[in-house]
Simulated assay, not measured.
Amino acid sequence: MTTAWLFLVVAIGAEVLGTSLLPRTDGFRRTGPTVAVLGLYGVALYCLSLALRALDVGVAYAVWAGVGTAAIAAIGMLILHEPRSASKVLGIGLVVAGVVALNLGGLG
């Protein structure tokens, strides 16, 4: 894995963790969770910017947004006890398929 992809993985992880903590901020009224969320979003954007030194913005952003969206949807259902449905699972699969297709297209 190249350094750019490693930065992208860290960016995705920080964004997913920050978004997962967002409900704990209580509308940004709780200081600790708010600082954590803002810090994690800062790390995510910084690492994304480092990844963009070597990766095409279209591919990097699609992977970042797609994997992050799929991960948050899965975390919502599995950890945050949000309702599950076949359409949500199908949607996650389609997001992942789209990210794979963009990556394959970017290799040519």
Rank of each mutant, 00 (worst) to 15 (best):
R84S: 05
F28A: 04
V59L: 08
K88M: 06
T34C: 13
V100H: 00
C47Y: 05
A97P: 12
G32L: 10
A14D: 10
S20G: 15
N103G: 14
I12D: 07
L104W: 02
V35Q: 15
P23I: 03
S87E: 13
M77T: 06
L52A: 07
A70F: 02
A70T: 00
V100P: 01
G105V: 13
L21Q: 08
V95H: 02
A62P: 03
G106W: 08
E82L: 12
G42W: 13
L90P: 05
A71H: 08
A60H: 09
V57A: 02
V100M: 03
R29P: 08
L8P: 11
G58I: 07
L78M: 02
L102T: 15
T69E: 06
G27W: 03
W64I: 12
T25P: 13
G27A: 00
A70W: 03
A44D: 10
A86L: 11
Y46K: 08
G42P: 11
G32V: 13
W5E: 03
A36L: 11
G105Q: 12
G76N: 07
M77E: 08
L52E: 06
M1F: 09
R29E: 13
H81K: 05
S87Y: 14
P33V: 00
V43W: 04
G93E: 00
G105P: 13
A74Q: 05
V63N: 12
L40K: 10
L104P: 00
L78N: 10
G27H: 07
P23V: 00
H81V: 06
T25D: 07
R29M: 10
V96I: 15
L80N: 01
